[in-house]
């Protein structure tokens, strides 16, 4: 969901807000804004990093840009949290909070520990505002490869960081839920540990995940998967960034319950994740039927799609002689 400009700029301290408004940014191309106390303001705009001059011009030399002072950072946090930072206590323990529009504000500072667990975070001096851009239709090209024999295939999306896997997963969920020319609509249960998929703000999802989607946000992935299985009777479970041993055990339960599974994992290639101890077993038993490998240039590009045996079903065309579409499903 696009964030109206006035609401977006309203989350910043007055001084920063005026400078950003002068810069005339196209919010749909803005990816990140980083605030660090007594350091230059940095933007990631169209995948490039810029500083901002006092006149509002973007500069590739951040040291020439405006610096953020600690008072401005505090004021920004007040606006981001609706003057209620304490209300986001649980999310802050995980290092982030979600704001209207589904955008994520990551924070860093001093952790206060109690009995080995994070009690809270204080003296927040670093803020990273990551804008969420729902790209409807970005999964159009992959959906037909995910259906086989009239059924949705268990799918694993493999992607390096910042290559659009969450954006792709979001659109896959939406299309599976709403239905596609290849498959009718299905009930989808989404495990949204960091509120990135639905981008829920005070319980209200800010992104469109489809007609038949239920979202369980904030909890640990393993527990959330089991809760969804028990309570919401999903036909499909979608989960972002699997990795731990509990996640893998929960995934096995999902497989054996007859649910279809869509998951993502950090990685650069199918061969690389085959070497990981936690995933090796699942891959060897061919639990996943489709592997979608993304690459970062440009973000969200599908490099290849593989079947359960690692056979290539689709490869992105880099040059005319590289075209290798072997088969479709």
């Amino acid at each position: 969901m696009a964030m109206p400009e006035e609401i977006f700029y309203g989350i910043f301290a007055r001084g920063i807000r005026e400078i950003l408004q002068k810069s005339g940014l196209d919010l749909s191309r803005l990816q990140e804004i980083r605030l660090r106390a007594d350091r230059p303001l940095l933007l990631r705009y169209e995948s490039l990093e810029y500083g901002v001059t006092p006149e509002g011009a973007l500069t590739k030399r951040p040291e020439c840009g405006v610096c953020v002072n600690s008072r401005e950072l505090e004021e920004t946090l007040e606006h981001v949290s609706g003057y209620s930072l304490y209300a986001f206590d649980e999310e802050l323990k995980q290092g982030f909070l979600t704001i209207p529009g589904g955008h994520r504000v990551g924070v860093a500072g001093r952790l206060v520990m109690e009995d080995g667990r994070v009690r809270c975070i204080r003296h927040i001096s670093y803020v990273n505002i990551r804008l969420s851009h729902q790209v409807k239709g970005c999964a159009d090209s992959v959906m037909r490869y995910l259906v086989s024999g009239g059924q949705l295939c268990h799918t694993l999306v493999i992607s390096p960081p910042r290559c659009g896997k969450t954006t792709l997963l979001r659109d896959m969920i939406r299309q599976i839920s709403d239905g596609t020319p290849y498959l009718g609509g299905m009930t989808v249960g989404v495990v949204d540990e960091r509120s990135e998929l639905a981008g829920a703000y005070l319980g209200m999802p800010q992104n469109d995940l489809g007609l038949r989607t239920d979202v369980l946000e904030g909890g640990l992935k393993a527990e959330s998967m089991m809760m969804l299985l028990r309570s919401m009777s999903p036909q499909v479970i979608a989960v972002d960034e699997i990795g731990g041993s509990e996640d893998c055990r929960a995934l096995e339960n999902v497989f054996h319950c007859g649910c279809r599974l869509i998951a993502t994992v950090h990685g650069v290639s199918f061969e690389e994740i085959k070497k990981r101890p936690l995933l090796r077993g699942m891959l060897r038993e061919q639990m996943f039927e489709r592997y979608i490998v993304l690459e970062g240039d440009p973000a969200g590009s599908v490099r290849e799609i593989l079947d359960e045996q690692g056979q290539r079903l689709y490869r992105r065309r880099h040059a005319p002689q590289d075209r290798e579409r072997i088969c479709g499903s």
């Binding site: 930072l85 206590d89 809270c120 204080r122």
Partner: peptide, 9 residues
């Protein structure tokens, strides 16, 4: 009533 230090609040 409004502070960024939730512990001190």
């Amino acid at each position: 009533l409004c502070g960024t230090d939730v512990v001190m609040q």
